[in-house]
């Protein structure tokens, strides 16, 4: 089932939190909403499935949807797993129970999903005894067990450590493939969008700045804020480069040059003053004042230059992105 919206707005205290002219998620498609903290990602998700007050229209299969219709179609996974005071199995069955399914039947249908998310062995345990990662797996199994035609995930991995997250991402991807649902994933992590979503929308200040195929969106920021969001944090304005547009690059792609090193070919080379060296564990980040803003370079090379001394950075033209006019 496809879900979408037109002119969706959420306001609070006279301030517009979210304003989305149109967003459509096709049947079976996963769309990621990527944005910085406070961009209104969660609010957009909640508004889209009528979990918060909003104006505008929500569409299910192209038709304006009522709250009741949305309740039938949607299952949500929140950032923090809110489980009931019950066993893991009963928690996994809770979504079905809330939809009027009898207890035995609900348990029977929920069990395979616990298995799919790798927590079947916890079924008789009480939910209070679970770790954060286990609890989130149960919460996801609970949402999947209702066989939703629309699944919304609100930063489901944000509270988890890196290993747990990677494993869960893989399990979730496999589980989603078993289910033909349209999925909305809210996240601030590019890797999650990359792993799960066919398309990605960038949300900044409550508005969708960019939407498209995940791989292209992640690699082609449309404006400076999107660029920063996508990791292109080194901004090279026309005044520095002499080009007519803002160029952006990832710090990992900015290479510091030795004093005697000639300019590499097919590269943009610029100068600045080294402001500080930030150790990142193995690599270091060099913050360089170009006289037209700050540029950064992440490198594993040995840096002999001291803060305050001039430094040259080079970026291969393939790693430069043009941003805006």
């Amino acid at each position: 089932m496809s879900i979408g919206c037109r002119d969706l707005r959420v306001t609070a205290g006279g301030r517009t939190l979210v304003s989305v002219a149109a967003l459509d998620i096709d049947d079976g498609e996963t769309v990621a909403i990527l944005g910085p903290n406070g961009a209104g990602k969660s609010t957009l998700l909640r508004a889209l499935v009528h979990l918060t007050q909003s104006s505008g229209t929500v569409l299910l299969d192209g038709q304006p949807a009522t709250t009741t219709a949305l309740r039938h179609a949607v299952a949500a996974v929140l950032q923090r797993p809110v489980l009931q005071r019950a066993t893991v199995l009963d928690n996994a069955a809770a979504g079905l129970r809330l939809r009027g399914v009898r207890r035995a039947e609900a348990r029977r249908r929920a069990e395979p999903w616990l298995d799919a998310l790798g927590v079947a062995h916890l079924a008789p345990r009480h939910a209070r005894t679970l770790s954060g990662g286990e609890a989130q797996r149960v919460a996801i199994a609970r949402a999947l067990a209702v066989a939703p035609r629309v699944l919304v995930l609100d930063e489901p991995f944000s509270g988890l450590d890196a290993t747990t997250r990677t494993d869960l991402l893989a399990d979730l991807r496999a589980a989603l493939d078993r289910l033909s649902a349209s999925v909305l994933l809210v996240t601030h992590d590019r890797a999650e969008a990359h792993a799960l979503a066919q398309r990605t929308a960038l949300l900044v200040d409550g508005e969708i700045r960019q939407i498209g195929k995940t791989s292209s969106v992640l690699d082609e920021p449309a404006d400076p804020e999107c660029a920063t969001l996508l990791g292109f944090t080194t901004h090279l304005p026309p005044a520095l480069t002499g080009r007519d547009v803002l160029l952006v690059a990832r710090p990992e792609r900015c290479t510091p040059l030795g004093d005697t090193t000639p300019d590499p070919p097919d590269s943009l080379v610029f100068e600045g003053v080294l402001r500080r060296v930030v150790p990142l564990g193995g690599a270091v980040r060099l913050d360089v004042d170009t006289g037209h803003g700050l540029a950064a370079s992440v490198t594993t090379a040995d840096i002999t230059a001291a803060p305050g001394s001039p430094i040259r950075l080079a970026v291969n033209v393939d790693d430069l992105r043009a941003c805006g006019r």
Partner: peptide
């Protein structure tokens, strides 16, 4: 919110 998000009236 979570219960409503699971489809509860």
């Amino acid at each position: 919110l979570q219960m409503r998000g699971l489809g509860a009236t």
